[in-house]
Design a binder for these strands. Sequence first.
RNA 1: GCGCCCGUAGCUCAACGGGAUAGAGCAUCGGCCUUCUAAGCCGAGGGUUGCAGGUUCAAGUCCUGCCGGGCGCACCA
Length: 578
Amino acid sequence: MTNIREQLSRLVGGALSEASGIADCNPNVIEATRSEFGDYQANGVMAAAGRCGRKPRELAEAVIDGMSDEDGIVASAEVAGPGFINIRLNDQALISRGNDVLRDPRSLIPPDRQAQKIVVDHSSPNLAKEMHVGHLRGTVIGDCLSRVLERLGHEVIRQNHVGDWGTQFGMLIAYMQELGEDSSVLQAELEDLETFYRAAKEKFDSDPAFADRARLSVVRLQGGDPEYLKAWQSFIDESLRHCQEIYGRMDVGLTLADLDAESRYNDDLDGIIRELEEKGLLQESDGARCVFLPEFKGKDGEPLPVIVQKSDGGYLYSTTDLAAVRMRSFDFEADRSLYVVDARQSLHFKQVFAVARAAGMASEDISLEHVAYGTIMGSDGRPYKTRSGDSVKLADLLDEAVARAFDLVSAKNPDLAEDERRLIAENVGIASVKYADLSKNRMSDYVFDWSTMLSFEGNTAPYLLYACTRIKSLLRKQEDDSGGNELTELTQPEERALLLKALQLPEIVEVVARECYPNLLCSYLYELSGAFMRFYEACPVLKAEPNIRNSRLALASLTEQTLEQGLDLLGIKTLERM
RNA sequence: GCGCCCGUAGCUCAACGGGAUAGAGCAUCGGCCUUCUAAGCCGAGGGUUGCAGGUUCAAGUCCUGCCGGGCGCACCA
């Protein structure tokens, strides 16, 4: 079942091509900007009229006459203003679509016509430290996009490009050895990776002998010394355990199978350099090996290098990223490769993509997309930190969210057993953090603020979850009539508005998949919840006469499906009670 | 200096390949619980979309120039 907008686009688009004689014109069908205009509006007539030299309103009339609406989805179409076509949908067509979804809830979001293979690179913490608030956005946005793309039938290859290689690990290994191999002391120390890192760093900075040992262990490690590799591996395993714990708690789908650690590419890096050299792209500058591309200029207009090998022979993350592009392009044969990474790295990705294209390390038709996101700020307008200036651990952030949610649930609903309140708080707290992030335009920086996020009013996770619990409560009380869950009539405007809104989910999901903006899905779900709340206030369900009662229960059930599926795409689970 | 991103209501944010009268929430003020969960609903006030030009039937959105802010720019990732 094609979504409503697409169906209308074809309908109007066909007639528009016919009437204007222009094959490739865009009917530009969007949801009506104001309800007086109907349900949808076609804005493309005016542009087409300009191209074929006809009067817009006259062309619009011709388009309306030429529409062959075989399914009878359009109740009325009329010319308005300078040449808009305002479209009102047929109630029966809406009811019939709604019933189709009720019979087969999966049909709400139909698969994309052509399934693609899509890499989603996200989360990517540095394993030297514990995950902190800086990893929140990449983790949550990437997880959401993965879910959306999977739901549309694409083959999604999640990649967690963790930092597990480089100089810090020499320091950490040296510090592990310092503490002694066997001890439970070590285990205890590793419980808090942040503290461990800080202690190692402190020693590194204050103890020259230790610093030497640290530098030596990098060399040993990178030289493949089994003892050092073993120590390194045990540290990595421990750090990954921390990550997976966070992912599990946040219901993020990343698993160990999705690991795409930097070290994976160690053996490829020589080859990358050789390949660049063969292509004639490599130049030496101040002892470093670089690629210069004309489109990149640095300070004072001088050519800007992409350094792929340091003067000491070491490789950089550009080199690794090139190797990763090559793998994604030629081994995975992906159609798209998304990099859900901080916006501050946009120059880096532009360079890597450009070099990869120039060197043939990316196939012609792979789409390389930096899905950039802004910074989480504190109320002082600086990147979000603790009062002492440290980065906020993700684990602590989640704890606090859950604690605040628990207080709130207890205040709102003191009759619930404590166990249940704990479970609700875990869900609500974490959902709130995720939703607060996903609902912001990913490109802009946003201010992290407990009071707006956990005030639980307005466009927040609790509002959506609350709408769900109202529906579920309603459906629980219907008791006897299990059968006949069918929409039959729309007696109130609130019912119609809700039904139409619910049927629009696939239109939004399609845009999210294309443009990678989860906040569009959030706004949609917020509007859907609002439409339900208004319906709930205006239309008695259980006390209505049987026909209407049944139809309204069906509408509630459809809304539940839509909300649940939509929230699932955000990585949020619904609740029975809250 | 060059490049990228941003500037929208007092605050936090929207506005989906340019569309008609720029929308929500918070905060403020005023209504609605003997009736399906009031974490809700209804209503009011609040704007020259940083400034100035340009493109066109139509500009918050596209182009140019300013002003203001953020970030990035040679061996960290």
